[in-house]
């Protein structure tokens, strides 16, 4: 397969490799759904499918934001904490007065997320502190802030305006809002990254930060933007989390950052930057969510879910490495022929 495409052109070869990643996730999904449905016919019931999509939507939003950051060769570990903070503060805000509009609530949530992202971005791009350390720090700081605000309290669904809850569980023409929002965001982000010059900058920066600097690209501004987007989308995800679950405690989404990073990497965004698409990342998120649901239906101990996620991650990274080596070898051979 690869031998044939190598002759046609490196570009189609590389495209194929990445499409291969997306296709193989789809194949894994189909296989997973088929096996699970075979064991338990209820898996594909309307409610079951709807649950998967609702749960996946929030992860997809976070994965899209995270993709921007990882493509620039950075990482954002604070998103789980941001979701928790936003879900609680916006819940608190709405519970105080049911008259407050949900549009305003969404804007507030995104703004809080964006401020967190701004802090990350400033520290990483201007402070020149490694992203891992910065966002690990803000993970704890934001979590602490969240606990301080919550003070052991809990937001309950009955305290929230019904309009918000219907956003979390209702839909138009039978399609729930959450997946609609997630798909819209994904398509917009994917289109921007592929078709706009500033979108390509993210890939260039992740591919070689030094070359990006020498080429005069606005490296710091793009890295800032990536964190701003990741934070803002985490804020949006926080509001949707509140709308979906209604009941929120302080550390609502604790630990989600690792799920998000896993989804992105399983989806083919290279942790070393410069490669991948938000579509892949979104598919990765859908796959992880489906595995969780499938394991519940198959009555497998939930403990195994983590082990399987981990195994999948290792598999994805090994496959990436293998493919990278193979592509490099093919390209070298082609170029050797050119040169002689």
């Amino acid at each position: 397969m690869t031998a044939v495409t190598a002759g046609r052109g490196g570009r189609s070869l590389v495209d194929l490799v990445f499409r291969a990643r997306e296709l193989s996730i789809v194949a894994a999904l189909v296989l997973l759904v088929a096996v699970t449905t075979g064991v338990n016919g209820n898996f594909l019931s309307g409610q079951g499918v709807k649950d998967i999509f609702l749960n996946a939507s929030i992860l997809v939003l976070l994965a899209v934001g995270q993709s921007f950051v990882i493509i620039t060769k950075n990482i954002d570990l604070s998103v789980g904490s941001v979701v928790g903070l936003v879900a609680f503060t916006v819940g608190d805000f709405l519970a105080a007065d049911h008259g407050r509009g949900i549009v305003f609530a969404v804007i507030l949530g995104v703004a809080i997320g964006a401020v967190c992202g701004l802090a990350n971005g400033l520290l990483v791009s201007f402070g020149r502190v490694p992203a891992l350390v910065v966002t690990l720090g803000t993970l704890y700081v934001i979590q602490g802030l969240d606990h301080f605000i919550a003070h052991g309290r809990q937001i309950n669904a009955v305290d929230l305006p019904p309009a918000l809850l219907s956003m979390g569980n209702g839909g138009v023409l039978g399609i729930p809002y959450l997946p609609l929002i997630a798909v819209l965001v994904m398509v917009a982000a994917g289109y921007y990254l592929r078709s706009y010059a500033s979108g390509r900058d993210f890939y260039a920066i992740g591919s070689s930060p030094e070359a990006a600097r020498l080429a005069g690209l606005p490296v710091r501004r793009r890295v800032m933007t990536a964190y701003l987007l990741s934070g803002g989308l985490a804020g949006l995800a926080g509001v949707l989390w509140l709308a979906r679950f209604g009941t929120v405690v302080a550390d609502a989404a604790g630990g989600w950052e690792l799920q998000v990073v896993s989804a992105v990497v399983v989806g083919g965004v290279a942790i070393t930057g410069g490669v991948g698409s938000v579509y892949g990342a979104a598919l990765g998120a859908l796959l992880l969510t489906t595995i969780t649901s499938a394991l519940v239906v198959l009555k497998v101990d939930p403990f195994w879910q983590q082990a399987i996620t981990g195994a999948l991650l290792l598999l994805a990274i090994s496959v990436d490495r293998l493919l990278a080596l193979r592509v490099a070898r093919i390209l070298r051979r082609r170029n050797a022929r050119h040169g002689s």
Binding site: R200, G206, E210, L217, G274
Partner: peptide, 15 residues
């Protein structure tokens, strides 16, 4: 200093 993950044409016209 090139961008190894981008195409040759993009390396020329980046930005």
């Amino acid at each position: 200093t090139m961008f190894p993950d981008l195409s040759v044409a993009e390396n020329i016209f980046i930005g």
